[in-house]
């Protein structure tokens, strides 16, 4: 997003120049909380153990507050406020689960579910169950658009039917490289991929939100395929995607083959075998094969990011493609 808008970044607590933090007192759902100045409402809610749904927020990204599902009611404010990006202020009185909050969250989920394929978004499905959201209430879904149709939409122009079916973002999946796929029929436009590709992590700026309104979509310049774009395949966007719209090719292929079996998978936290930075890897393995490499957001070193080598290059342990079984064949002492 706009890098001119710089929110003040608190110095690390152990930084010698950090002044003693000012403590704020606020009331959340009747509980009194004391927090350091600069804390977001979401952090306050989390510290009180109040489970607050989020879709576009992530620990390692600048809040963009676009999904609007983390909104809470702030006494004295005209509208609900996004807890992810609203800083706590002294004396605030906040209601995190009022009927107004519940209604807003439910309708937001219904709007998303009515326009997006949520089949690989377990988190969203859980939220929908929690708020009894009905994705069908705006009518049956419109037929999917042809490949590239949404990419060509021009700002300020649209086609409207008779309203009997609900417009969606359904479209064919984009497969233009061997490492990951883009299924924008599942995209809720949370901006996490754009942020990951931007200043929050990779800073390659290969993708951005193009178009406007309901036609807004994640796009490269003039929607060129990824190999023609600035993408460096760090995969940080894939890791960040909350709905499976971006998916590692390895996972996509296994799912297509009906061989994606979460019950048979294990995840292991380890360290990347390439350069000396020491990024944390989370390996998902199935049938003794690495099927997905993710990066924990809480890693003190890599904070959710990896480069192409750590993300995709680690499959070397399975041998060079096409040379499986071609392991060293000498005798063991």
């Amino acid at each position: 997003m706009n890098p001119h808008v710089r929110r003040p970044q608190p110095l690390p607590a152990d930084h010698p120049g950090t002044p003693a933090p000012r403590l704020l007192t606020l009331t959340i759902d009747g509980q009194v909380a004391q927090v350091r100045e600069g804390t977001s409402l979401l952090k306050v809610l989390q510290s009180l153990g109040i489970d607050t749904p989020t879709l576009c927020w992530a620990e390692n990204l600048t809040p963009v507050n676009v999904c609007r599902i983390c909104v809470v009611e702030l006494e004295g404010a005209r509208t609900l406020v996004p807890s992810c990006s609203r800083a706590a202020e002294d004396g605030m009185v906040v209601h995190s689960d009022s009927p107004r909050v519940q209604a807003a969250r439910r309708t937001v989920l219904e709007l998303l579910a009515s326009s997006v394929d949520t089949s690989t978004a377990p988190q969203m499905l859980a939220f929908m169950a929690r708020y009894a959201a009905d994705g069908q209430r705006f009518g049956p879904a419109q037929a999917p658009l042809a490949a590239g149709e949404r990419d060509r939409a021009l700002a300020g122009h649209h086609h409207l039917g008779d309203g009997q079916s609900a417009a969606t973002v359904a479209q064919p999946v984009k497969i233009d490289n061997s490492l990951y796929v883009r299924d924008y029929a599942k995209c809720i436009l949370c901006y996490k991929c754009v942020e990951s590709c931007g200043i929050d992590a990779q800073a390659s700026f290969a993708i951005a939100v193009a178009g406007r309104g309901f036609d807004a979509r994640i796009s490269t310049e003039h929607a060129v395929p990824l190999p023609e774009s600035a993408c460096v395949y760090c995969g940080t966007c894939v890791d960040a995607c909350p709905t499976g719209a971006l998916m590692f090719k390895s996972e996509h292929d296994l799912r297509q083959a009906g061989q994606w079996r979460p019950a048979d998978q294990a995840t292991t936290r380890t360290i990347c075998p390439f350069c000396g930075v020491g990024c944390t890897l989370e390996l998902t393995s199935q049938d003794n094969k690495i099927v997905r490499v993710t990066s924990p957001k809480d890693s003190p070193v890599s904070a959710g990011a990896l480069c192409v080598k750590g993300r995709f290059g680690t499959v070397f342990v399975h041998g060079v493609a096409g040379e499986e079984g071609d392991e060293p064949s000498s005798t063991v002492p």
Binding site: V64, N65, V66, C67, R68, I69, A104, T107, V108, L111, L112, S114, S115, F138, G139, A155, G156, H157, H158, L160, G161, G163, A166, A167, I188, L189, V209, G211, R212, G213, F214, D215, A216
Partner: peptide, 21 residues
């Protein structure tokens, strides 16, 4: 619908649903 920037869900999808309605 045309003028919504498309950033937040209530406006991006809501304006479409209102128009359909």
């Amino acid at each position: 619908r045309d003028e919504s920037c498309g950033q937040c869900v209530p406006c991006r999808v809501g304006t479409v649903r209102v128009q359909e309605l």
